[in-house]
Protein backbone atom coordinates (compact mmCIF):
# COMPACT_ATOMS: atom_id res chain seq x y z
CA UNK A 1 0.00 0.00 0.00
CA UNK A 2 1.24 3.42 -0.93
CA UNK A 3 1.42 5.59 2.19
CA UNK A 4 3.02 8.76 0.89
CA UNK A 5 3.20 10.14 -2.60
CA UNK A 6 5.02 13.35 -3.44
CA UNK A 7 4.31 14.75 -6.89
CA UNK A 8 6.29 17.38 -8.76
CA UNK A 9 7.37 19.21 -5.60
CA UNK A 10 8.97 22.59 -6.27
CA UNK A 11 10.36 25.11 -3.80
CA UNK A 12 12.08 28.39 -4.61
CA UNK A 13 13.29 30.46 -1.68
CA UNK A 14 12.53 34.14 -2.37
CA UNK A 15 16.12 35.33 -1.90
CA UNK A 16 17.57 32.75 -4.28
CA UNK A 17 16.64 32.41 -7.89
CA UNK A 18 17.42 28.71 -8.24
CA UNK A 19 14.92 26.11 -7.10
CA UNK A 20 16.01 24.35 -3.89
CA UNK A 21 13.71 21.51 -4.87
CA UNK A 22 13.04 21.29 -8.56
CA UNK A 23 10.23 18.92 -9.45
CA UNK A 24 10.67 15.89 -7.26
CA UNK A 25 8.50 12.75 -7.14
CA UNK A 26 8.59 10.20 -4.31
CA UNK A 27 6.42 7.23 -3.58
CA UNK A 28 6.78 5.38 -0.27
CA UNK A 29 4.96 2.19 0.69
CA UNK A 30 3.74 1.30 4.15
CA UNK A 31 6.55 -0.29 6.18
CA UNK A 32 9.27 0.84 3.82
CA UNK A 33 12.53 2.61 4.72
CA UNK A 34 13.13 5.06 1.91
CA UNK A 35 16.55 6.68 1.71
CA UNK A 36 17.29 10.16 0.45
CA UNK A 37 20.96 10.86 -0.05
CA UNK A 38 22.92 13.89 -1.20
CA UNK A 39 25.35 16.56 -0.06
CA UNK A 40 24.64 19.57 2.15
CA UNK A 41 22.51 22.09 0.34
CA UNK A 42 21.10 19.70 -2.27
CA UNK A 43 17.56 20.22 -1.01
CA UNK A 44 16.93 17.06 0.97
CA UNK A 45 15.92 18.79 4.20
CA UNK A 46 13.72 21.17 2.22
CA UNK A 47 11.74 18.14 0.99
CA UNK A 48 11.36 16.93 4.56
CA UNK A 49 10.08 20.28 5.76
CA UNK A 50 7.76 20.67 2.80
CA UNK A 51 6.13 17.29 3.45
CA UNK A 52 5.33 18.30 7.02
CA UNK A 53 4.31 21.80 5.92
CA UNK A 54 6.94 23.45 8.03
CA UNK A 55 7.56 25.55 4.91
CA UNK A 56 5.22 26.39 2.03
CA UNK A 57 6.09 25.35 -1.52
CA UNK A 58 5.24 26.89 -4.89
CA UNK A 59 4.18 23.73 -6.68
CA UNK A 60 3.37 20.11 -6.18
CA UNK A 61 1.34 17.87 -3.91
CA UNK A 62 2.01 15.59 -0.95
CA UNK A 63 -0.54 12.80 -0.77
CA UNK A 64 -0.69 10.98 2.53
CA UNK A 65 -3.19 8.15 2.39
CA UNK A 66 -4.47 9.84 -0.76
CA UNK A 67 -5.19 13.17 0.93
CA UNK A 68 -3.20 16.22 -0.11
CA UNK A 69 -1.47 17.57 2.99
CA UNK A 70 -0.54 20.80 1.21
CA UNK A 71 -4.16 21.73 0.55
CA UNK A 72 -5.49 20.69 3.93
CA UNK A 73 -6.98 23.30 6.27
CA UNK A 74 -4.81 23.95 9.31
CA UNK A 75 -7.17 22.30 11.80
CA UNK A 76 -7.31 19.08 9.85
CA UNK A 77 -3.56 19.10 9.28
CA UNK A 78 -3.05 19.26 13.01
CA UNK A 79 -4.80 15.92 13.46
CA UNK A 80 -2.59 14.48 10.73
CA UNK A 81 0.56 15.66 12.45
CA UNK A 82 0.10 12.91 15.01
CA UNK A 83 0.82 10.28 12.42
CA UNK A 84 3.68 12.14 10.68
CA UNK A 85 6.68 12.89 12.86
CA UNK A 86 10.25 14.03 12.42
CA UNK A 87 13.60 13.26 14.05
CA UNK A 88 16.11 16.07 13.66
CA UNK A 89 19.82 15.99 12.98
CA UNK A 90 21.22 17.85 15.90
CA UNK A 91 20.09 16.57 19.26
CA UNK A 92 21.91 19.49 20.86
CA UNK A 93 19.76 22.20 19.33
CA UNK A 94 16.46 20.38 18.88
CA UNK A 95 15.80 19.97 22.62
CA UNK A 96 14.97 22.92 24.86
CA UNK A 97 17.92 23.15 27.28
CA UNK A 98 15.74 24.29 30.20
CA UNK A 99 13.14 21.55 30.03
CA UNK A 100 13.57 18.20 31.74
CA UNK A 101 13.47 15.05 29.63
CA UNK A 102 10.26 13.81 31.28
CA UNK A 103 8.52 17.11 30.53
CA UNK A 104 9.72 17.15 26.90
CA UNK A 105 7.92 13.86 26.31
CA UNK A 106 4.91 14.59 28.54
CA UNK A 107 4.27 17.80 26.61
CA UNK A 108 3.45 15.73 23.53
CA UNK A 109 0.64 13.99 25.42
CA UNK A 110 -0.67 17.30 26.72
CA UNK A 111 -0.88 18.68 23.19
CA UNK A 112 -2.27 15.66 21.41
CA UNK A 113 -4.21 13.55 23.90
CA UNK A 114 -6.76 14.10 26.60
CA UNK A 115 -5.26 12.06 29.44
CA UNK A 116 -5.16 12.22 33.20
CA UNK A 117 -1.88 13.24 34.81
CA UNK A 118 -1.23 9.67 35.93
CA UNK A 119 -1.88 8.28 32.45
CA UNK A 120 0.47 10.87 30.99
CA UNK A 121 3.23 9.93 33.42
CA UNK A 122 2.83 6.24 32.61
CA UNK A 123 2.95 6.86 28.88
CA UNK A 124 5.99 9.11 29.23
CA UNK A 125 7.90 6.41 31.03
CA UNK A 126 6.70 3.76 28.58
CA UNK A 127 7.90 5.88 25.65
CA UNK A 128 11.31 6.51 27.19
CA UNK A 129 11.71 2.81 27.87
CA UNK A 130 11.02 2.09 24.20
CA UNK A 131 14.21 3.96 23.29
CA UNK A 132 16.29 2.39 26.04
CA UNK A 133 16.07 5.22 28.59
CA UNK A 134 14.63 4.48 32.01
CA UNK A 135 13.02 6.31 34.91
CA UNK A 136 16.37 7.83 35.91
CA UNK A 137 16.18 10.14 32.89
CA UNK A 138 12.82 11.75 33.72
CA UNK A 139 14.31 14.55 35.82
CA UNK A 140 17.45 15.20 33.80
CA UNK A 141 18.19 18.13 31.54
CA UNK A 142 19.41 17.70 27.94
CA UNK A 143 22.82 19.07 28.91
CA UNK A 144 23.33 16.16 31.30
CA UNK A 145 22.98 13.67 28.45
CA UNK A 146 25.44 12.40 25.86
CA UNK A 147 24.80 12.99 22.14
CA UNK A 148 23.47 9.47 21.70
CA UNK A 149 21.12 9.77 24.68
CA UNK A 150 19.81 13.10 23.40
CA UNK A 151 19.07 11.54 20.04
CA UNK A 152 17.16 8.79 21.87
CA UNK A 153 15.05 11.53 23.47
CA UNK A 154 14.45 12.99 19.99
CA UNK A 155 13.26 9.58 18.83
CA UNK A 156 11.06 9.15 21.93
CA UNK A 157 9.45 12.52 21.28
CA UNK A 158 8.63 11.44 17.73
CA UNK A 159 7.25 8.08 18.92
CA UNK A 160 5.06 9.64 21.60
CA UNK A 161 2.22 10.42 19.17
CA UNK A 162 2.28 6.82 17.96
CA UNK A 163 3.02 7.83 14.35
CA UNK A 164 2.93 5.72 11.21
CA UNK A 165 5.43 7.75 9.24
CA UNK A 166 8.66 9.31 10.51
CA UNK A 167 11.08 11.54 8.64
CA UNK A 168 14.59 10.98 9.98
CA UNK A 169 16.65 13.99 8.91
CA UNK A 170 20.33 13.07 9.29
CA UNK A 171 19.61 11.43 12.65
CA UNK A 172 23.11 10.00 13.07
CA UNK A 173 25.45 12.39 11.29
CA UNK A 174 26.57 14.26 14.38
CA UNK A 175 27.29 11.08 16.34
CA UNK A 176 30.40 8.96 16.84
CA UNK A 177 30.38 5.88 14.65
CA UNK A 178 29.88 3.55 17.64
CA UNK A 179 26.86 5.55 18.84
CA UNK A 180 25.64 5.80 15.25
CA UNK A 181 25.45 2.00 15.12
CA UNK A 182 23.43 1.90 18.36
CA UNK A 183 20.93 4.48 17.09
CA UNK A 184 20.58 2.75 13.70
CA UNK A 185 19.89 -0.52 15.53
CA UNK A 186 17.22 1.22 17.59
CA UNK A 187 15.58 2.73 14.50
CA UNK A 188 15.58 -0.65 12.74
CA UNK A 189 14.13 -2.41 15.81
CA UNK A 190 11.35 0.16 16.20
CA UNK A 191 10.52 0.01 12.51
CA UNK A 192 10.03 -3.76 12.68
CA UNK A 193 8.17 -3.73 15.99
CA UNK A 194 5.70 -1.00 15.02
CA UNK A 195 5.72 -1.46 11.24
CA UNK A 196 6.79 2.16 10.84
CA UNK A 197 7.56 3.86 7.55
CA UNK A 198 10.66 6.05 7.35
CA UNK A 199 11.94 8.67 5.00
CA UNK A 200 15.61 8.47 5.96
CA UNK A 201 17.78 11.42 4.96
CA UNK A 202 21.58 11.23 5.03
CA UNK A 203 24.68 12.40 3.26
CA UNK A 204 26.30 9.02 3.87
CA UNK A 205 25.43 6.42 1.28
CA UNK A 206 26.93 3.75 3.54
CA UNK A 207 24.42 4.45 6.28
CA UNK A 208 21.53 4.60 3.81
CA UNK A 209 22.67 1.38 2.16
CA UNK A 210 22.77 -0.54 5.39
CA UNK A 211 19.20 0.20 6.50
CA UNK A 212 17.08 1.36 3.52
CA UNK A 213 14.97 -0.57 1.01
CA UNK A 214 15.01 2.03 -1.75
CA UNK A 215 17.02 5.17 -2.26
CA UNK A 216 16.93 8.38 -4.27
CA UNK A 217 20.20 10.17 -4.94
CA UNK A 218 19.70 13.91 -4.99
CA UNK A 219 21.79 16.68 -6.46
CA UNK A 220 20.99 20.37 -6.87
CA UNK A 221 17.28 19.98 -6.19
CA UNK A 222 16.72 16.99 -8.46
CA UNK A 223 16.86 13.21 -8.21
CA UNK A 224 19.61 11.81 -10.40
CA UNK A 225 18.86 8.18 -9.62
CA UNK A 226 16.18 6.18 -7.77
CA UNK A 227 16.41 2.43 -7.28
CA UNK A 228 16.25 -0.41 -4.76
CA UNK A 229 19.36 -0.26 -2.57
CA UNK A 230 20.85 -3.55 -3.80
CA UNK A 231 20.68 -2.28 -7.36
CA UNK A 232 22.24 1.08 -6.67
CA UNK A 233 25.19 -0.52 -4.90
CA UNK A 234 25.67 -3.32 -7.40
CA UNK A 235 25.43 -1.12 -10.50
CA UNK A 236 25.19 2.62 -9.94
CA UNK A 237 24.05 4.29 -13.15
CA UNK A 238 24.84 7.94 -12.51
CA UNK A 239 28.37 9.33 -12.19
CA UNK A 240 27.37 11.27 -9.09
CA UNK A 241 26.11 8.11 -7.37
CA UNK A 242 29.48 6.52 -8.09
CA UNK A 243 31.27 9.47 -6.47
CA UNK A 244 29.15 9.20 -3.34
CA UNK A 245 29.60 5.47 -3.25
CA UNK A 246 33.34 5.83 -3.46
CA UNK A 247 33.26 8.41 -0.65
CA UNK A 248 31.35 6.10 1.67
CA UNK A 249 34.36 3.80 2.15
CA UNK A 250 32.35 0.63 2.05
CA UNK A 251 35.16 -1.52 0.75
CA UNK A 252 36.75 -2.08 4.14
CA UNK A 253 34.19 -4.68 5.09
Amino acid sequence: MELLKVKNLKKIFPKHKVAAVDGVDISISKGEIYGLVGESGCGKSTIARAILRLIEVQEGSVLYKEQDLLKMPYRKMRAFRKSLQMIFQDPHTSLDPRVKIGEIIEEVFIIHDNLSQQERRNKTLETLEMVGLGEAYLGRLPSELSGGERQRVGIARALATDPEFIICDEPVSSLDISVQAQILNLLMDLQKRKNLTYLFISHDLGVVGSICDRVSVMRKGRFVETAPCEEIFASPKHEYTKTLLNASRLHFR
Partner: peptide, 18 residues
Amino acid sequence: SIPSLKNRKKRFEAIEGK
Protein backbone atom coordinates in the same frame (compact mmCIF):
# COMPACT_ATOMS: atom_id res chain seq x y z
CA SER B 1 29.74 -0.32 13.91
CA ILE B 2 30.85 0.45 10.36
CA PRO B 3 28.00 0.36 7.83
CA SER B 4 28.38 -2.61 5.55
CA LEU B 5 26.54 -3.86 2.51
CA LYS B 6 27.17 -7.48 3.38
CA ASN B 7 24.95 -7.12 6.43
CA ARG B 8 22.31 -4.96 4.83
CA LYS B 9 19.13 -4.56 6.89
CA LYS B 10 20.69 -6.49 9.76
CA ARG B 11 21.47 -5.12 13.19
CA PHE B 12 24.98 -3.76 13.68
CA GLU B 13 27.36 -5.66 15.93
CA ALA B 14 27.51 -2.48 17.94
CA ILE B 15 29.09 -1.78 21.31
CA GLU B 16 26.35 -1.47 23.92
CA GLY B 17 26.40 1.11 26.70
CA LYS B 18 28.52 4.22 26.77
